[in-house]
Design a protein around this nucleic acid. Sequence first.
DNA 1: GTTATTGTAACTAGAATAGTTACAAATGAA
DNA 2: TTCATTTGTAACTATTCTAGTTACAATAAC
Lengths: 153, 153
Amino acid sequence: MSTNSRFAVAVHVLTLMAWSDEESLKSDQMAVSVNTNPVVVRRMLCDLAEGKLVVSHTGSTGGSRLARNPEQITLLDVYRTIEATDVFSLHPKRPSHRCPVGSSIGTVLQGVRAEIDSAIEGVLAGITIEDVMLRLKPQARRPEVKKKRASNH
Amino acid sequence: MSTNSRFAVAVHVLTLMAWSDEESLKSDQMAVSVNTNPVVVRRMLCDLAEGKLVVSHTGSTGGSRLARNPEQITLLDVYRTIEATDVFSLHPKRPSHRCPVGSSIGTVLQGVRAEIDSAIEGVLAGITIEDVMLRLKPQARRPEVKKKRASNH
DNA sequence: GTTATTGTAACTAGAATAGTTACAAATGAA
DNA sequence: TTCATTTGTAACTATTCTAGTTACAATAAC
């Protein structure tokens, strides 16, 4: 995945939408919290919408909200939706097929990568957006009383 | 770790050295198998030498060989030595500390990353360079009789 | 119609990646 | 000693990746 922060941004905006409950959020609002450009947020929201994790609407009263409950969205859903880059890359140029090691090291490395992917997916499948909210610092937590409330960034 | 192939190259050259047994290999030879420039290999070998995984010697009869037996080098050793990049990056610019989510999402994400790292390390700790050799295609395997033999790439 | 918002294309600056040339330092052999 | 060979490393380059930015058509509510 790597030197790209798409997963972090995705989890962030999903958590914002979970936080604001039914209230739909504008890309501008979320961009302030994420500290980036609204277009970066909108691009991410498009991807998340394709993955059926959020629903967006155009128009003056538009915005985005979660497509399902926070406890029904796992970080694995997010990970898959954003099509994260591989955990590690194979050789930029194919190794020598004339060398006994070079000719099959790629297959071996793909196997290792598959094992790592399973492990990662096991972790991510066990964490939901609801869990992420619960892990936020106490003072940041949404009140127990699950009442509709304005978001505040 | 990501869009960088250093882990793949590291495992590749270590496997070449394991294959060639006591015979020390030149960076030029390994570069042919990896299909890259010898300097790229030498840079990697320097890192691996710092991590005490290989030993190199300058001079006309120089070259590199493993610092210990293939079964005593795990992929976790390699992973740590090359200082792989993070599995995923946090936000390029710090989120808003004025937003309840933005102010603590970073800590939550670091926690998630730590869980992923543990999982990855568990996998990598269980695979040695010896295992990698055993996973090579049968026709590529070094003969059972562990006799010194010239490498062939 | 006016206004606010998304979706998306096009461009940019900066960073990361690995490939390349070049050469000093080390080592062993003639 | 002198020569050949190899590592270690600096410096530069081309390419790709990343995310930031501007701009604007399409959409929807009022």
